[in-house]
Each structure stands twice: as structure tokens, then as C-alpha cells.
Design a protein around this nucleic acid. Sequence first.
DNA 1: GCCAACGTTGGC
DNA 2: GCCAACGTTGGC
Length: 150
Amino acid sequence: MAYWLMKSEPHEFSIDNLKEKRRQSWDGVRNYQARNMMRDDMKKGDLAFFYHSNCKEPGVAGIVSICKEAYPDNITFGRKGKEVKGNEDPDNPTWFMVDVQYKRKLKRTIKLSDIKAESTLKNMQLVRKGNRLSVMPVSKAEWDHILSME
DNA sequence: GCCAACGTTGGC
DNA sequence: GCCAACGTTGGC
């Protein structure tokens, strides 16, 4: 089983929105690296941190599980409410999405600044300079460490 | 709102 | 294939 981190802008789709809906397709990813990970490496039952980005208090807000493996993302107006270019050729899709299921909110948001302050987490992809991936792998050690900060 | 750090596009 | 211009992400 693998661990992941998935970013969402809370004013567009937050952990509370997911808590209400219980389950949601993670559509709108239009980055090849992120797509490859979703399509090739994400398996049902994997766990992911729900990360709030581009907001007042960026950080890990909750935990979700992957409840459906990658399938074509044909949604034009996505989860984020933004228009995104879809799959022009339905027989040969370029873009994929997975479904995630709400597991729980963390007792507190583990802020990006908290994570940055942990020297043992300094190699996390999340805190590497210039990282803009919306989906990224998290090691078991990193996963456990962040949960220990809850 | 600013801007660094990417990724993408398109002319050549 | 190179690379400048442009668009996007996302912290601050």
C-alpha cells in the first residue's frame, strides 16, 4: 500500500466539502507527472493526505483513501469549478482521475510551516523548492511522522 | 498582489 | 530540437 499527498484549494474544494460528500472524483488534473502517478501507481486502498493549498493556512487537513483506480477524466468543468481541456479522443484518453473517499480530518491542520520546521521532513517533495505537483508520493516514514505531529 | 519556479506552446 | 514567450501554481 502506498501513501500520497493530494492538493486542493480549500475555497474551491476543501476537506469539509469532501466530508459532506463522502466521496469525490479527483478530476481536473492536467499535469503529466501527476497523471502518470494517478494512472500507473495509485491503487485502491492507498491512503492520501488531503492538502490545502493556495490559502491562508496551507497544510495537511485530512486523510482520504483511494476508492476507485484511474479512469478517463472527461469532465470539462471540474471539481475546482474551472474549465479544463478534456480528452479529445475518447478512445485514447490523455487525462485520468481517481475517486477518493473521506476518511477523517486531522485534529489540527499540520501547517506547511510546521512541516518545514521538521528537519527529518526536509526531503519531502512537498517542501522541495519549486515543487508544484498536485499529486505526489509520500513515504511511510513521512506519513507516520506527520501523523505524530497531529 | 507579487513573483519564483516551473510547464507548455509555437516559431524557427 | 532549441528557446523565448507565455501561462500556471502556490507560498508569502
